[in-house]
Simulated assay, not measured.
Amino acid sequence: MNVYYNPGDDGAELNYGYRGTPVQIDLGFDASEDFHRYAIEWEPTGIKWFVDDKLIHERTSWDPTPIPHLPMQFFINLWSSRSEEFAGRLALEGGPAHSDIRSIRLQGHKRAGVS
């Protein structure tokens, strides 16, 4: 999992400060063997990640990057990391790769004073 943070004003395209804060989490199972429910709860004071309704990671501090305060964008992709420590060695002989997604649900919450 990762948090990318751009400390610029809303809409700033090139004001990059903090790139990302990758964390590798051992789920205790092979996530590719079956569908699972993944959830992220983002609040002004922290971010929580869940798998199958179980809290697996929480960030509540500004270290190593701040908790994002600007509106977020949602992306889904399948990518290979260049970091062997983060994602393991890429097995080129196993390609091409694919990702199956059963459903997606985004639910936003309006903060007081924000439209």
Score class of each variant (00 low, 15 high):
K54G: 02
R19A: 14
I25A: 04
E85T: 01
R82N: 10
G20I: 03
E93F: 09
G28Y: 00
D52H: 13
R89M: 08
W79T: 10
A112V: 06
F75H: 09
L14M: 12
G108A: 08
I40R: 05
G94V: 04
A87T: 03
S103A: 14
P22W: 01
Q73I: 06
F35C: 11
V114N: 06
I101P: 03
P66K: 03
R111H: 07
H57M: 04
R105D: 10
M1N: 09
I101R: 03
S32W: 02
K54V: 13
G95Q: 08
S32M: 08
E84V: 13
H98W: 09
F35V: 09
V3L: 12
D52S: 12
I67G: 06
T60P: 02
G108S: 07
E58H: 05
E13Q: 12
S99P: 04
F35D: 11
D34S: 15
E93N: 12
E43A: 12
P64E: 00
D10I: 03
E85M: 03
R59W: 00
I25R: 07
W42Q: 02
G88H: 05
K54T: 14
E93L: 09
H69N: 14
D63V: 08
R59E: 04
G20D: 08
R37M: 10
D10M: 01
D26T: 06
V51S: 09
G17F: 01
Q24A: 15
D52M: 13
S32D: 13
I101M: 12
W79G: 06
D34M: 11
D100A: 11
N15M: 06
V114M: 04
M72I: 10
G11E: 04
D52E: 11
Y5H: 14
E58T: 07
V114P: 03
V51M: 13
S115R: 14
K48R: 15
E84Y: 01
D30Q: 08
W62S: 13
T21K: 04
A39L: 11
E93M: 07
M72V: 11
G20E: 08
V23R: 07
N15V: 10
